[in-house]
Design a protein around this nucleic acid. Structure first.
Lengths: 140, 140
DNA sequence: CTAGCTGCAAATTCTTTGCTACTAT
DNA sequence: ATAGTAGCAAAGAATTTGCAGCTAG
């Protein structure tokens, strides 16, 4: 039973100056259940407050990413997509037929990756797993 | 004891018209042991034949990728990197301190990913694993 | 021959940045 | 007050494309 992440509060805790624009963008990301790109974030933010420029969205996303408040994804379509940093790490399955993105967590996968890195003499600091797949049955 | 992949032969088998430019680019990729970006491929190709334009490198890489002859990677630095499609699939560890990229294969990881996809109702068609890491000891 | 390829330069797309005015603290 | 922020428009960086001439098969 988790509430949407309160990104605005996290921003304040990080000492960010809270402008109306940042509040709006934080709200958009907090309630987003998908992985919107910059244009889409801007579109949604503009619905709440039309005084928000694309440049501000770019700057805000870079800022929040550096602070670890949002995750940036590059799913291979040429633009960055974002999501509020989840409490727990997860990976993604991309349905190559529909573009739909499904999140999943697999502890075994997490452990295995750490082991692989260590076996090769590395300490894992981050990782990315993207599974490109199609639905099993033909029920769409 | 594998020889470098003969990309030129593969191109011909796919029915590609073999121009000097494509031959040169194929040779560059065949002998590359790293993951060069477009500029780097162009630079190396130009050493062999200065009549090659950037546009042709872009077009050729798109073509070869569509034919499955090369793999495209997006390691998060904003530009695409390429490698001749390997005989066997492998994944990558990116040393976040040096930018060095190490390839690895882990059958267990391959199997686990397929299982995860199936468990969620998908059939895996492709996947990407990137481990961002630092060297364990301070011996560099 | 001629469909396909190339170089060049212009165009696109995504993202960053300089600058001046504004505002949260 | 004042350091940080916003908007705008221009600049950048990576990639694609229109076109006229060249070339592999």
């Amino acid at each position: 039973m988790e509430e949407a992440i309160d990104l605005e509060t996290l921003c304040q805790q990080k000492g960010l100056r809270m402008t109306d624009q940042r509040r709006t963008i934080a709200a958009v990301l907090s309630k987003a259940k998908d992985h919107p790109d910059i244009e889409e974030i801007h579109r949604r933010a503009a619905l709440r407050d039309s005084r928000i420029s694309l440049a501000t969205v770019y700057r805000t996303m870079n800022l929040m990413e550096e602070l670890g408040l949002v995750d940036r994804h590059e799913f291979g379509d040429g633009r960055a997509r974002f999501e509020a940093a989840p409490d727990a790490h997860h990976d993604h399955i991309i349905n190559v037929e529909t573009g739909e993105i499904v999140e999943f967590v697999d502890p075994e996968l997490e452990i295995l990756q750490r082991q692989i890195a260590e076996r090769l003499g590395y300490r894992l600091v981050d990782h990315r797993v993207e599974l490109f797949a199609v639905r099993l049955n033909q029920d769409e």
